[in-house]
Write a protein that binds this DNA or RNA. Structure first.
Lengths: 201, 201
DNA sequence: AGTGAAACGCAACGCAAGTTGCGATAAGGA
DNA sequence: TCCTTATCGCAACTTGCGTTGCGTTTCACT
């Protein structure tokens, strides 16, 4: 259970406590993208945030908690859900978005660390699961709109379609290590869109 | 670079050295499936294998190397590539196979640890990439056969199709944590098969 | 059987992660 | 402004991973 439950609206929203919190999370996110989860030392995070090691450990009991907090803080920012008018282009936009996020050197390192979190501890895994279920659930809206437009049958599996769309990107990131390009995103989107439509006939 | 380059045909294939090797790798694989990567202590592996901690460290310089060796040893065993006569059923068989491997409690823990390896060190990641590239490359044969049969266009992207097939399974394992069932495998196979055929028109 | 080389067991060590107690400081309200 | 409380800095400590040196055992080959 994270000690860090400070949010906007708490007792001291604008004081030192909040500044320390944001500084530490930012430093953690930076280091994560630079060297990867395993190479991140909590003490280095503290140093970069101009804070003492003890302070970090008091807020986030373990390195895993700290990284999880930093990642969710960063990723919770913007989740643009495309609405271009057709399933193909919506899926393409989604896939390109994911590819842009995990396809870069730093983004890849960050994303790999996220995935690795589920292997660290079951408790941490649960937190990440909730995060992703929510995020993919939001993306599923494009499928629902396609159903509403009559592009897909009413029984189309929105979750499966989204999971299958981003699947090859994550497989490349975590398993084969092959490059994650915009072209790949486009092809995956075309493949999944075609399959979804064909399957819903 | 792993010290462990002993193979069948080496200097002392039947002696203590080989027994130690197999015992340690088996113990490591067991513990990995029981508690997950992060909770595996090298000393515990040594104890379970009735071997001293030092011996393990001499063969495998780091915990990551040890786990990687244990995993590849286990996974390199059987890779049945289905050949049922149609793309749909071949993809279904492949997906079911993967689902059976990563869908169980222990298999899931093992697979998560494999994926986490790419976040541990770049060197270790390279090893795993090679392993998976080879494995998925073998699976791509079913797509090639479909092309040969005329089910798919000659320019069908075999790698993409395989990556998209297993994608949703791995996404569930690593991101959303949702159950990985045979039904899911069947649906993913149907979706990808339909998409591959539609896209190749 | 004997012999050199390789591998193992054992104990001790170095090092970094994570913890704890206490004094100092900053925030919010009277 | 003053006072209470929460938070931080600091230093010392504990713990466990990974390492090293050395004596002992086992293997493969005469």
């Amino acid at each position: 259970m994270p000690i860090d439950d400070r949010r906007v609206g708490d007792k001291r929203p604008g004081g030192r406590a909040t500044r320390v919190r944001t500084d530490v999370l930012r430093a953690a996110a930076e280091l994560l993208e630079e060297v990867g989860y395993d190479q991140v030392a909590v003490e280095d995070v503290a140093t970069r945030a101009d804070v003492h090691k003890t302070t970090v450990y008091r807020r986030w009991p373990t390195k895993a908690e700290l990284i999880a907090a930093a990642v969710t803080e960063h990723s919770a920012e913007a989740v643009p859900i495309p609405d271009t008018g057709s399933l193909e282009s919506d899926l393409q936009a989604l896939a390109r978005e994911v590819a842009a996020n995990i396809g870069t050197e730093s983004g890849g390192r960050r994303s790999r660390s996220i995935a690795a979190a589920s292997a660290i501890s079951d408790e941490l895994a649960e937190r990440m699961y909730g995060f992703w279920a929510d995020r993919l659930g939001q993306s599923a809206a494009v499928v629902q709109r396609a159903i509403d437009r009559g592009e897909l049958a009413t029984n189309a599996d929105a979750n499966l379609i989204i999971e299958t769309l981003i699947g090859p990107l994550w497989v490349r990131l975590l398993l084969t290590g092959e490059p994650i390009t915009e072209t790949l995103a486009d092809r995956a989107a075309a493949l999944v869109a075609a399959g979804a439509k064909a399957g819903s006939v």
